[in-house]
Write a protein that binds this DNA or RNA. Structure first.
Lengths: 156, 156
DNA sequence: TTTGGTGCAAAGGCTTTGCACAGTT
DNA sequence: AACTGTGCAAAGCCTTTGCACCAAA
Protein backbone atom coordinates (compact mmCIF):
# COMPACT_ATOMS: atom_id res chain seq x y z
CA UNK A 1 0.00 0.00 0.00
CA UNK A 2 1.19 3.45 -0.89
CA UNK A 3 1.81 5.72 2.05
CA UNK A 4 1.15 9.38 2.28
CA UNK A 5 4.85 10.13 2.15
CA UNK A 6 5.23 8.08 -1.02
CA UNK A 7 2.60 10.15 -2.70
CA UNK A 8 4.31 13.34 -1.64
CA UNK A 9 7.55 11.91 -2.97
CA UNK A 10 5.90 11.35 -6.33
CA UNK A 11 4.57 14.88 -6.34
CA UNK A 12 8.08 16.16 -5.78
CA UNK A 13 9.52 13.94 -8.48
CA UNK A 14 6.93 14.93 -11.03
CA UNK A 15 8.04 18.51 -10.48
CA UNK A 16 11.70 17.45 -10.74
CA UNK A 17 12.52 17.76 -7.06
CA UNK A 18 14.04 15.12 -4.84
CA UNK A 19 12.84 13.88 -1.49
CA UNK A 20 16.09 14.46 0.34
CA UNK A 21 16.55 13.28 3.94
CA UNK A 22 15.97 16.82 5.16
CA UNK A 23 12.80 17.19 3.16
CA UNK A 24 11.57 13.82 4.32
CA UNK A 25 12.24 14.70 7.96
CA UNK A 26 10.33 17.94 7.50
CA UNK A 27 7.38 16.23 5.87
CA UNK A 28 7.30 13.62 8.64
CA UNK A 29 7.07 16.33 11.26
CA UNK A 30 4.18 17.88 9.39
CA UNK A 31 2.43 14.52 9.18
CA UNK A 32 2.93 13.89 12.88
CA UNK A 33 1.50 17.28 13.75
CA UNK A 34 -1.33 17.47 11.30
CA UNK A 35 -3.67 18.93 13.88
CA UNK A 36 -1.37 21.78 14.74
CA UNK A 37 -0.58 24.97 12.93
CA UNK A 38 3.16 25.08 13.15
CA UNK A 39 5.33 28.04 12.35
CA UNK A 40 8.58 27.55 10.45
CA UNK A 41 10.44 27.83 13.75
CA UNK A 42 8.18 25.20 15.34
CA UNK A 43 8.83 22.84 12.45
CA UNK A 44 12.54 23.53 12.65
CA UNK A 45 12.75 22.68 16.34
CA UNK A 46 10.77 19.48 15.88
CA UNK A 47 12.83 18.35 12.90
CA UNK A 48 15.99 19.14 14.82
CA UNK A 49 15.05 16.60 17.51
CA UNK A 50 15.56 13.79 15.00
CA UNK A 51 17.89 15.45 12.53
CA UNK A 52 20.00 17.87 14.55
CA UNK A 53 22.15 18.92 11.63
CA UNK A 54 19.32 20.53 9.68
CA UNK A 55 19.37 24.28 9.14
CA UNK A 56 16.51 26.70 9.53
CA UNK A 57 16.96 27.95 5.97
CA UNK A 58 16.39 24.44 4.64
CA UNK A 59 13.15 24.19 6.57
CA UNK A 60 12.01 27.49 5.09
CA UNK A 61 12.99 26.34 1.63
CA UNK A 62 11.20 23.03 2.08
CA UNK A 63 8.05 24.69 3.37
CA UNK A 64 8.09 27.08 0.46
CA UNK A 65 8.48 24.16 -1.92
CA UNK A 66 5.63 22.24 -0.33
CA UNK A 67 3.44 25.33 -0.50
CA UNK A 68 4.20 25.68 -4.18
CA UNK A 69 3.25 22.04 -4.75
CA UNK A 70 0.10 22.59 -2.70
CA UNK A 71 1.08 19.89 -0.24
CA UNK A 72 0.72 22.43 2.54
CA UNK A 73 -1.09 25.72 2.86
CA UNK A 74 0.66 28.76 4.22
CA UNK A 75 -1.67 30.60 6.52
CA UNK A 76 -1.47 33.70 8.58
CA UNK A 77 -3.56 34.48 11.63
CA UNK A 78 -2.24 38.01 11.88
CA UNK A 79 0.32 37.35 14.61
CA UNK A 80 3.32 38.04 12.42
CA UNK A 81 4.34 34.48 11.63
CA UNK A 82 3.33 32.19 8.80
CA UNK A 83 1.95 28.82 9.71
CA UNK A 84 1.90 25.70 7.61
CA UNK A 85 -1.00 23.35 7.36
CA UNK A 86 -0.96 20.02 5.57
CA UNK A 87 -3.70 19.82 2.97
CA UNK A 88 -6.26 17.09 3.34
CA UNK A 89 -5.71 14.67 0.51
CA UNK A 90 -8.35 15.03 -2.15
CA UNK A 91 -10.00 17.91 -0.34
CA UNK A 92 -11.82 20.07 -2.84
CA UNK A 93 -11.58 23.08 -0.59
CA UNK A 94 -9.34 24.51 2.06
CA UNK A 95 -10.60 23.96 5.59
CA UNK A 96 -11.59 26.79 7.89
CA UNK A 97 -10.27 27.92 11.24
CA UNK A 98 -11.62 28.95 14.59
CA UNK A 99 -9.16 31.10 16.48
CA UNK A 100 -9.89 31.62 20.18
CA UNK A 101 -9.15 35.17 21.27
CA UNK A 102 -8.98 34.02 24.87
CA UNK A 103 -6.62 31.03 24.87
CA UNK A 104 -5.19 31.23 21.34
CA UNK A 105 -6.27 27.73 20.37
CA UNK A 106 -6.87 27.09 16.68
CA UNK A 107 -9.49 24.51 15.73
CA UNK A 108 -10.19 23.31 12.24
CA UNK A 109 -13.47 22.92 10.46
CA UNK A 110 -13.28 20.42 7.64
CA UNK A 111 -16.87 20.83 6.52
CA UNK A 112 -17.53 22.71 3.35
CA UNK A 113 -19.53 25.63 4.66
CA UNK A 114 -19.06 27.93 1.72
CA UNK A 115 -20.70 26.03 -1.14
CA UNK A 116 -23.70 28.33 -1.38
CA UNK A 117 -21.70 31.46 -0.67
CA UNK A 118 -19.25 30.63 -3.43
CA UNK A 119 -22.05 30.15 -5.94
CA UNK A 120 -23.35 33.61 -5.08
CA UNK A 121 -19.92 35.20 -5.35
CA UNK A 122 -19.15 33.57 -8.70
CA UNK A 123 -22.50 34.56 -10.13
CA UNK A 124 -22.96 38.06 -8.72
CA UNK A 125 -19.36 39.25 -8.88
CA UNK A 126 -18.31 37.27 -11.93
CA UNK A 127 -15.33 36.04 -9.94
CA UNK A 128 -13.79 32.62 -10.63
CA UNK A 129 -12.88 31.26 -7.21
CA UNK A 130 -9.67 29.26 -6.96
CA UNK A 131 -9.16 29.24 -3.20
CA UNK A 132 -10.52 30.77 -0.04
CA UNK A 133 -9.57 31.62 3.51
CA UNK A 134 -12.19 31.71 6.23
CA UNK A 135 -11.27 32.33 9.84
CA UNK A 136 -13.56 33.06 12.74
CA UNK A 137 -12.24 34.84 15.79
CA UNK A 138 -14.10 34.34 19.05
CA UNK A 139 -14.42 32.24 22.19
CA UNK A 140 -13.87 28.50 21.89
CA UNK A 141 -15.88 25.81 23.66
CA UNK A 142 -13.09 25.19 26.16
CA UNK A 143 -13.05 28.78 27.36
CA UNK A 144 -16.86 28.80 27.42
CA UNK A 145 -16.73 25.79 29.66
CA UNK A 146 -14.14 27.39 31.90
CA UNK A 147 -16.20 30.53 32.40
CA UNK A 148 -19.35 28.46 32.98
CA UNK A 149 -17.56 26.49 35.67
CA UNK A 150 -16.36 29.68 37.23
CA UNK A 151 -19.94 31.00 37.36
CA UNK A 152 -21.02 27.74 38.98
CA UNK A 153 -18.36 28.07 41.64
CA UNK A 154 -19.19 31.70 42.29
CA UNK A 155 -22.76 30.69 43.08
CA UNK A 156 -21.73 28.32 45.82
CA UNK B 1 -24.05 67.96 10.69
CA UNK B 2 -21.46 65.73 12.25
CA UNK B 3 -18.74 64.53 9.93
CA UNK B 4 -17.09 61.18 9.89
CA UNK B 5 -13.90 62.67 11.26
CA UNK B 6 -15.78 64.27 14.15
CA UNK B 7 -17.14 60.91 15.15
CA UNK B 8 -13.69 59.37 15.01
CA UNK B 9 -12.47 62.26 17.14
CA UNK B 10 -15.11 61.43 19.73
CA UNK B 11 -14.12 57.79 19.69
CA UNK B 12 -10.54 58.81 20.42
CA UNK B 13 -11.59 61.17 23.19
CA UNK B 14 -13.80 58.64 24.87
CA UNK B 15 -10.74 56.40 25.07
CA UNK B 16 -8.65 59.31 26.38
CA UNK B 17 -6.69 59.89 23.22
CA UNK B 18 -6.32 63.14 21.30
CA UNK B 19 -6.86 63.79 17.64
CA UNK B 20 -3.48 65.36 16.99
CA UNK B 21 -2.66 66.94 13.63
CA UNK B 22 -0.68 63.84 12.68
CA UNK B 23 -3.54 61.54 13.59
CA UNK B 24 -6.00 63.70 11.74
CA UNK B 25 -3.82 63.73 8.63
CA UNK B 26 -3.58 59.94 8.80
CA UNK B 27 -7.31 59.49 9.22
CA UNK B 28 -7.98 61.84 6.31
CA UNK B 29 -5.77 59.76 4.06
CA UNK B 30 -7.67 56.66 5.09
CA UNK B 31 -11.00 58.39 4.36
CA UNK B 32 -9.78 59.55 0.96
CA UNK B 33 -8.66 56.05 0.05
CA UNK B 34 -11.48 54.05 1.49
CA UNK B 35 -11.62 51.78 -1.52
CA UNK B 36 -7.98 50.85 -1.30
CA UNK B 37 -6.13 48.52 1.00
CA UNK B 38 -3.16 50.59 1.99
CA UNK B 39 -0.08 49.33 3.76
CA UNK B 40 1.50 51.40 6.52
CA UNK B 41 4.12 52.54 4.03
CA UNK B 42 1.42 53.55 1.53
CA UNK B 43 -0.36 55.58 4.19
CA UNK B 44 2.93 57.15 5.27
CA UNK B 45 3.77 58.32 1.75
CA UNK B 46 0.30 59.75 1.21
CA UNK B 47 0.28 61.55 4.56
CA UNK B 48 3.74 62.89 3.83
CA UNK B 49 2.44 64.69 0.73
CA UNK B 50 0.42 67.05 2.92
CA UNK B 51 2.35 66.78 6.20
CA UNK B 52 5.98 66.20 5.21
CA UNK B 53 7.26 66.30 8.76
CA UNK B 54 5.41 63.17 9.88
CA UNK B 55 7.40 60.08 10.82
CA UNK B 56 6.75 56.51 9.82
CA UNK B 57 6.64 55.42 13.45
CA UNK B 58 3.80 57.82 14.13
CA UNK B 59 1.83 56.35 11.25
CA UNK B 60 2.38 52.88 12.65
CA UNK B 61 1.34 54.04 16.10
CA UNK B 62 -1.75 55.75 14.75
CA UNK B 63 -2.78 52.74 12.72
CA UNK B 64 -2.32 50.51 15.74
CA UNK B 65 -4.46 52.89 17.78
CA UNK B 66 -7.20 52.98 15.17
CA UNK B 67 -7.15 49.21 14.98
CA UNK B 68 -7.54 48.99 18.73
CA UNK B 69 -10.53 51.35 18.57
CA UNK B 70 -11.94 49.30 15.70
CA UNK B 71 -11.96 52.32 13.41
CA UNK B 72 -9.89 50.33 10.95
CA UNK B 73 -9.29 46.65 10.41
CA UNK B 74 -5.81 45.30 10.01
CA UNK B 75 -5.78 42.70 7.30
CA UNK B 76 -3.21 40.49 5.74
CA UNK B 77 -3.39 38.96 2.30
CA UNK B 78 -0.29 36.88 2.81
CA UNK B 79 2.14 39.15 0.98
CA UNK B 80 4.13 40.07 4.06
CA UNK B 81 2.61 43.46 4.81
CA UNK B 82 -0.36 44.47 6.91
CA UNK B 83 -3.04 46.51 5.24
CA UNK B 84 -5.52 48.81 6.87
CA UNK B 85 -9.14 49.07 5.96
CA UNK B 86 -11.58 51.63 7.30
CA UNK B 87 -14.60 49.98 8.87
CA UNK B 88 -18.00 50.80 7.45
CA UNK B 89 -19.84 52.80 10.04
CA UNK B 90 -22.42 50.75 11.80
CA UNK B 91 -21.45 47.61 9.94
CA UNK B 92 -22.31 44.60 12.03
CA UNK B 93 -19.74 42.50 10.29
CA UNK B 94 -16.43 42.84 8.58
CA UNK B 95 -16.66 42.90 4.82
CA UNK B 96 -15.08 40.26 2.63
CA UNK B 97 -12.42 40.41 -0.03
CA UNK B 98 -11.87 39.12 -3.53
CA UNK B 99 -8.18 38.96 -4.36
CA UNK B 100 -7.35 38.47 -8.04
CA UNK B 101 -4.43 36.10 -8.52
CA UNK B 102 -3.88 37.49 -12.01
CA UNK B 103 -3.79 41.28 -11.59
CA UNK B 104 -3.62 41.59 -7.80
CA UNK B 105 -6.75 43.74 -7.52
CA UNK B 106 -8.66 43.56 -4.28
CA UNK B 107 -12.42 44.07 -4.40
CA UNK B 108 -14.70 44.30 -1.42
CA UNK B 109 -17.96 42.58 -0.74
CA UNK B 110 -20.08 44.46 1.73
CA UNK B 111 -22.94 41.95 1.76
CA UNK B 112 -23.31 39.74 4.76
CA UNK B 113 -22.77 36.35 3.23
CA UNK B 114 -21.97 34.47 6.38
CA UNK B 115 -25.14 34.80 8.44
CA UNK B 116 -26.20 31.19 8.00
CA UNK B 117 -22.68 29.84 8.21
CA UNK B 118 -22.10 31.65 11.49
CA UNK B 119 -25.26 30.20 13.00
CA UNK B 120 -24.02 26.72 12.14
CA UNK B 121 -20.57 27.35 13.57
CA UNK B 122 -21.91 28.82 16.81
CA UNK B 123 -24.34 25.94 17.26
CA UNK B 124 -22.25 22.97 16.11
CA UNK B 125 -18.88 24.04 17.47
CA UNK B 126 -20.12 25.97 20.48
CA UNK B 127 -17.96 28.87 19.37
CA UNK B 128 -18.94 32.46 20.14
CA UNK B 129 -17.99 34.41 17.03
CA UNK B 130 -16.62 37.90 17.54
CA UNK B 131 -15.12 38.56 14.15
CA UNK B 132 -14.35 36.86 10.89
CA UNK B 133 -12.09 37.05 7.89
CA UNK B 134 -13.21 35.74 4.53
CA UNK B 135 -11.08 36.12 1.42
CA UNK B 136 -11.53 34.50 -1.94
CA UNK B 137 -8.61 34.09 -4.28
CA UNK B 138 -9.34 33.75 -7.97
CA UNK B 139 -9.85 35.58 -11.24
CA UNK B 140 -11.66 38.92 -11.16
CA UNK B 141 -14.22 40.12 -13.70
CA UNK B 142 -11.70 42.46 -15.31
CA UNK B 143 -9.27 39.67 -16.08
CA UNK B 144 -12.15 37.49 -17.26
CA UNK B 145 -13.12 40.24 -19.66
CA UNK B 146 -9.56 40.63 -20.86
CA UNK B 147 -9.22 36.94 -21.66
CA UNK B 148 -12.67 36.89 -23.32
CA UNK B 149 -11.64 39.78 -25.54
CA UNK B 150 -8.46 38.01 -26.38
CA UNK B 151 -10.40 34.92 -27.40
CA UNK B 152 -12.63 37.09 -29.58
CA UNK B 153 -9.62 38.61 -31.30
CA UNK B 154 -8.02 35.23 -31.82
CA UNK B 155 -11.13 34.08 -33.70
CA UNK B 156 -10.91 36.88 -36.22
C1' DT C 1 4.97 70.91 35.14
C1' DT C 2 3.00 66.92 34.15
C1' DT C 3 1.44 64.10 30.63
C1' DG C 4 0.76 62.37 26.17
C1' DG C 5 2.52 62.44 21.56
C1' DT C 6 6.24 62.81 17.99
C1' DG C 7 10.51 62.10 15.11
C1' DC C 8 14.54 59.83 14.55
C1' DA C 9 17.44 56.12 14.74
C1' DA C 10 18.29 51.80 16.54
C1' DA C 11 16.78 47.38 17.55
C1' DG C 12 13.78 43.30 16.78
C1' DG C 13 11.68 39.37 14.63
C1' DC C 14 10.68 36.65 10.71
C1' DT C 15 12.23 35.32 6.24
C1' DT C 16 15.25 35.24 2.25
C1' DT C 17 19.64 35.05 -0.03
C1' DG C 18 24.75 34.48 -1.21
C1' DC C 19 28.16 31.39 -1.11
C1' DA C 20 31.09 27.57 -0.43
C1' DC C 21 30.58 22.83 0.18
C1' DA C 22 28.41 18.06 -0.02
C1' DG C 23 25.84 14.46 -2.40
C1' DT C 24 23.93 12.40 -6.67
C1' DT C 25 23.68 11.19 -11.24
C1' DA D 1 31.95 17.06 -14.14
C1' DA D 2 27.40 19.11 -13.75
C1' DC D 3 23.70 20.01 -10.86
C1' DT D 4 20.77 20.08 -7.01
C1' DG D 5 20.38 20.73 -2.36
C1' DT D 6 22.35 22.18 2.24
C1' DG D 7 24.24 24.88 6.28
C1' DC D 8 25.76 28.99 7.87
C1' DA D 9 25.90 33.70 8.22
C1' DA D 10 24.63 37.91 6.40
C1' DA D 11 21.29 40.75 4.59
C1' DG D 12 16.42 42.28 3.93
C1' DC D 13 12.10 43.80 5.11
C1' DC D 14 8.39 45.18 7.96
C1' DT D 15 7.42 46.72 12.46
C1' DT D 16 8.34 48.12 17.18
C1' DT D 17 10.83 50.57 20.71
C1' DG D 18 14.02 53.86 23.34
C1' DC D 19 14.81 58.35 24.01
C1' DA D 20 15.11 63.23 23.78
C1' DC D 21 12.17 66.84 22.52
C1' DC D 22 7.53 69.26 21.93
C1' DA D 23 2.99 70.72 22.87
C1' DA D 24 -1.19 70.93 25.17
C1' DA D 25 -3.75 70.96 29.60
Amino acid sequence: MESRIDRIKKQLHSASYKLTPQREATVRVLLEHEEDHLSAEDVYLLVKEKSPEIGLATVYRTLELLTELKVVDKINFGDGVSRYDLRQEGAAHFHHHLVCIECGAVDEIQDDLLGDVEKIVERDWNFKIKDHRLTFHGICWRCHKKSDEKTENDKQ
